[in-house]
Design a protein around this nucleic acid. Structure first.
Ligand SMILES: [Mn+2]
Ligand SMILES: [Mn+2]
Ligand SMILES: [Zn+2]
Ligand SMILES: [Zn+2]
Lengths: 142, 142
DNA sequence: CTATCAAATGATAATAATTATCAAAAAGCA
DNA sequence: TGCTTTTTGATAATTATTATCATTTGATAG
């Protein structure tokens, strides 16, 4: 795992707890998880791990660019591994299913902004809401 | 104000408190405000207004489509009046300035999503982060 | 291998945002 | 005016997040 190098090069240790958080984020198809979900999963391997450790680990992983914060409109933030691929998410308002969306071009977006202002875009946050295919097809709803 | 009709048609009353919240959202160039900012402004006219009333009013205004929730990455949500114009916001990471961005075409976005999935987009949430013009120009920074 | 020191953890308290309750006040109407 | 429903304000309860601090762990020097 490349995360270990990025941690060590900054003087941080890859502890078992941190490894477990990384594995939780990597599992289950890499869907974005909130802190509670991550804590539950890590607890299977580390019964009694503190919720604060989960928060601290996520904060660190985001700082190092290993994880990305995702906003899915509810109360709590979600996190996902930074795969290097630029993507956002489609959130089904009916079943809650979250799937990745890759049709966003950050460069083109920044240009469009520059056209109407002198603002320099360095990052953005996009979430798309609607109804997923399963919820729309009559046969195979869930 | 058209908000009054929308309220009354659903059996709600346009109370002085609700009017004050609407005025707070309309003032100051219609910038998105969080609940604390709204509460402070309304308190000038209504000393002792409950914070819960502000929350309840915002929830109602959003339900009726009179106000829109805006996510600007920090802890608390922001709200703005629904002007009917589709727009998002540019958030300066240096000075915190927030300015509207109108270069988003929801229809085109929905099409792009349909191209790569069978997801039907009904709404989306976009925030753009970066450095504003004032913070980049050496002479007139703030 | 053991002593040492900084980093990390777990338990817990403290904040902060939001929501729920409920009795009192206000508004609309007979 | 009296009755009914809505709305409010005060307050408690939740929930998410951050801060503290004593203890443990991991790396390293001797
Ligand atoms: Mn994007
Ligand atoms: Mn848009
Ligand atoms: Zn669905
Ligand atoms: Zn700025």
């Amino acid at each position: 795992m490349d995360a270990e190098r990025r941690l060590r090069s900054r003087g941080y240790r890859l502890t078992p707890q941190r490894r477990a958080v990384l594995e939780a984020l990597a599992g289950e198809g890499g869907r974005p998880l909130d802190t509670s979900q991550i804590h539950k999963r890590v607890s299977r391997e580390f019964p009694g791990i503190g919720l604060a450790t989960v928060y601290r680990t996520l904060e660190l992983l985001v700082e190092l660019g290993i994880a990305l914060p995702v906003h899915l409109h509810e109360g709590s933030r979600h996190y996902e591994l930074n795969t290097g691929e630029h993507r956002h998410h489609l959130v089904c308002l009916s079943c809650g299913e979250v799937q990745p969306f890759r049709g966003c071009d950050p460069g083109e977006l920044a240009e469009r902004v520059r056209d109407e202002s002198d603002f320099l875009v360095t990052s953005h946050c996009l979430s798309l809401f609607g109804i997923c295919g399963s919820c729309r097809s009559p046969g195979r709803g869930r």
